[in-house]
Design a protein around this nucleic acid. Sequence first.
DNA 1: TTCATATCTAAGCATATGCTTAGTTTAGTG
DNA 2: CACTAAACTAAGCATATGCTTAGATATGAA
Lengths: 187, 187
Amino acid sequence: MARTKKYNEQEVIEKAMTLFWKNGYENTSVRMLEKEMGINQFSIYASFGSKHGVFLESLKCYKAKNNNMFVKLKNGTNGVEDIKTFFYDSINKPNELANQKGCLFTNTYNEFADIEDQMIKSQMNEFMDNLKMLFIEKLATDASKDEETILKQANYLLLAKHGLAAATRVNDKKEIEDYIEFTFKNI
Amino acid sequence: MARTKKYNEQEVIEKAMTLFWKNGYENTSVRMLEKEMGINQFSIYASFGSKHGVFLESLKCYKAKNNNMFVKLKNGTNGVEDIKTFFYDSINKPNELANQKGCLFTNTYNEFADIEDQMIKSQMNEFMDNLKMLFIEKLATDASKDEETILKQANYLLLAKHGLAAATRVNDKKEIEDYIEFTFKNI
DNA sequence: TTCATATCTAAGCATATGCTTAGTTTAGTG
DNA sequence: CACTAAACTAAGCATATGCTTAGATATGAA
């Protein structure tokens, strides 16, 4: 009936994701996306509707690519030690970008902190709530801890993970490893 | 000889600082500065040369306005406890912006993390090095700590302070206070 | 009061942005 | 093969950006 697409949407979104990760949302222009994705602006808009749409798909793509880390955390059987491993995993990814640009979700969380964008915000909240629940689950394997302590510690670890992702962008590996070690000293 | 300025450069820079603090560098336009500072673009360029120039002066202004916190930290006599107070001071400033927008320096540190801008970077490094030295000084008042421990703890606290400033933008007061408490449990 | 000169206003410049559209190419169906 | 409809190209639109400039305004020394 008609012509077929030359590109694969999954493939080009992965490239878009990389670009957004590098530069953030605002500092990535549609012209830049055009070049990186290797397709024309028309195709971008035909496939994803808007720059915003490309971004949302990029977030989903990022989430999918990092799912294994969360599965590993979820399936771990060593309580707090699993969380610590999760912290180390998040700074030791094979992908070089992760060691320079932190976590795309955390970056986005920061960039959109005071912007009213429900689509983005719900993605963020889902991500953070999910992580917090996992932390709580792991902390709760230690039967000696009461509920209040668990909640406080989960909050602490969530902020620490947040700070860690930010630190990845400006601190060196040694400083970051020191940070992780101290973070888990009293948990 | 000639007409006199209607505005005071110190006063208008303070307003510019507020705007940069709210929105960051890139997301603050010269038109916005014009409105907030209450002077025409021509005057902005006559007084500060460029948007970049306005920003640098804003950073200096911010530094000056927060100097008392650093003096207080420097002159304290309670070692680590002074650092903790410094953490609390930094989230309990009378200025409401500080409780929503974190620290202008940390925000700038993040925004310019991968941008080659020597003027900005040297301002940032001076700020961070200075803070680290103060931390080391305070930690060293505990004679039982060896040099390596002091250095590691200083790194830890610097990252924690960094994360704290980021957290101010997205977390509520209770979560943040929990974070500070746990942070110092590990020291 | 005169008038040189710095300050102000407002319009404009070149470029970048997100997005659209007119028109061409191409693939699959009848 | 012919033709329809989707995928493509490239030009263009409206608006925003940082910065400049021509010209009006006001100030203080002579």
